[in-house]
Design a protein around this nucleic acid. Structure first.
Length: 498
RNA sequence: GCCAAGGUGGCAGAGUCCGGCCGAACGCAGCGGCCUGCAGAGCCGCCCACCGCCGGUUCAAAUCCGGCCCUUGGCUCCA
């Protein structure tokens, strides 16, 4: 079976066929860097990352571009706050660095380019000029607006009729516009204090002062700043060309952001802007979505500190990218259980393979068959619109098969186990899960100390002092160290994220 | 109001495109057994689902069609 994806543009599941059968041009609508990244962003990133990894697994070369919107009123609003920086550019830079650090800690593959709006203003101006020349845009008091009535297919992505959209427009808004649904491509002047007032936090610089740090550029229409939507069209075209294979973003961006991108780009180039539009669904917190603007978020760095990368990735891929996912302590705890189960099975298999007399000729048909079936199931799941939950389930089946094989047996199926371990590692990697580095290592100090304590405890056990032995185990457990007694002595696991 | 997605066991969450393998996956919780000094982990087995409601098509429907109820997201700040 080949890869199928659900395309927002058509509302249907379609076979995936990039323009060039060997390369995929992937654009991800990145962040406006005005707030610390939260788990909602991480969910989208991880899903895009898994798409990227899966496309590579299938043999495609992926050219992956992910932008940073670093020109925005909300960034200006935070000038002077804490140690964010003294101007729009500094604040943006602070958050970009923080975002890249969060991405690394989530084990995301790097995009090929992370373009910034501030570095693409000339391309933006070119694009706006083209739109004006072609009659799709008009200048008004130094600003330039896109005339939605000129683009016949306006509304095709979000599947809305223009008159319906028009009726939603605020009648008091900007008399500069010809139609309520027209949107700004270029905004005259800088940022005025009133515009940022509602986004200001405590400790931020006075609005007037902050606005003075807002950057402006010369243009054929005078000093000004780019509008919100135009940057993605300009940057994606610059780095990937006129037609993208895949454009990914959050569901909340479908309208107006993505709709406007389609309109601008297609009006300007006359070519289809993106072949496949994939939209990541949002986290559900109790009753509402998680978002920066609602303030109900958990930041990425907090989450990684608390749960570790593998648990987070297991959690973030616990549902399909295009299904809403419930966020709660329980659902995270369940993801942690699933990851632990995978990790323990992997570890015990590796230990069995490392044993001195491991190279046996024993064959366990059930093990081999289950692992092969699980691999097929994994591939099928991923090809079915990146069904990561099903993929996890396939991995778990390998874990169960490994555990069952290891159970109460003296000789192991060496080749079968090797295959199981390799399958876990290779397919786990598609989900960005890493079995190395988080296993019990004796190299680090914490591990050494735990082993020392376990040695003492073992002697207490041998002497029959179970009470004292249990105390030691309880104390380790209180520190988050899991201790398990096995036939070959005690094993331990350090807390996640260490 | 308009657009979109969804309603499956105690929880979470696949399956719905291409009807039968679904008497419904995987995981968690719960129960029983094995193992264990004990605990944990692990293994084996079990429990819990008339798949939102009503009607239709069909030899056969969670899956297709029609109507209804409810939830969530979007409708110019948002991944």
């Amino acid at each position: 079976m080949t890869l199928h994806v659900t395309n927002t543009l058509t509302g249907e599941r379609e076979p995936f066929e990039p323009q060039d059968p060997e390369n995929v041009l992937l654009y991800y609508c990145g962040l406006t860097v005005s707030d610390p990244p939260h788990l909602g962003h991480a969910r989208s990133w991880v899903h895009v990352d898994v798409m990227h990894r899966w496309l590579e697994y299938l043999g495609y070369d992926v050219r992956h571009v992910e932008n940073f919107t670093d020109i925005n009123e909300k960034i200006v609003a935070r000038v002077g706050e804490d140690d964010l920086g003294e101007g729009e550019a500094d604040v943006a830079e602070t958050y970009i660095e923080r975002t890249l650090a969060d991405m690394r800690s989530l084990n995301l593959l790097r995009a090929e380019v992370y373009p910034r709006v501030s570095e693409h203003v000339p391309e933006i101006i070119d694009l706006v000029e083209t739109l004006v020349e072609k009659g799709y845009a008009y200048e008004s008091n130094g600003s330039v607006y896109f005339d939605v009535t000129q683009f016949e297919e306006y509304g095709k992505l979000s599947n809305q009729e223009l008159d319906e959209i028009e009726s939603q427009g605020d009648p008091d808004e900007r008399s500069e516009k010809r139609n309520p649904a027209d949107f700004a491509l270029w905004k005259a002047g800088g940022v005025d204090a009133e515009a940022i007032e509602e986004h200001r936090h405590e400790g931020a610089a006075p609005a007037e002062e902050a606005c003075e740090t807002a950057r402006t550029w010369d243009s054929p229409w005078g000093e000004g700043r780019p509008g919100w939507h135009i940057e993605c069209s300009a940057m994606s075209t610059t780095h990937l060309g006129e037609t993208l294979d895949v454009h990914v973003g959050g569901r909340d961006l479908v309208f107006p952001h993505h709709e406007n991108e389609v309109a601008q780009s297609e009006a300007a180039t006359g070519q289809q802007f993106a072949k496949y539009w994939l939209h990541c669904e949002l986290f559900q917190m109790d009753e509402e979505k998680m978002s920066s603007s609602l303030g109900n978020f958990v930041t990425v760095d907090e989450a990684i500190d608390r749960w570790g990368t593998n648990v987070m990735r297991t959690f973030l891929t616990a549902g399909s990218y295009n299904s809403q996912q419930l966020y709660s302590d329980e659902t995270i705890a369940e993801a942690e259980e699933r990851w632990d189960r995978l990790e323990r099975a992997h570890e015990s298999a590796v230990e069995a393979l490392d044993a001195p007399d491991a190279r046996t000729k024993v064959e366990d048909e059930a093990l081999r068959e289950t692992v092969d079936d699980a691999r097929d199931a994994f591939v099928e799941a991923m090809n079915d619109d990146f069904n990561t939950r099903e993929a996890q389930s396939a991995l778990l089946q390998v874990a169960t098969a490994v555990n069952a094989h290891l159970e109460g047996r003296d000789e192991y199926d060496y080749r079968g186990l090797r295959n199981a371990v390799e399958t876990l590692e290779e397919l786990g990697d598609v989900l960005g899960l890493s079995f190395v580095g988080e296993t019990t290592g004796s190299a680090d100090l914490a591990g050494d100390v735990v082993e020392l304590v376990l040695g003492v405890r073992e002697r207490e056990r041998e002497a029959g002092n179970y009470e004292r032995a249990d105390e030691l185990r309880d104390e380790l457990q209180a520190l988050g160290v899991e201790v398990q007694d096995t036939d070959d002595g005690a094993t331990y696991r350090l807390p996640s994220g260490e």
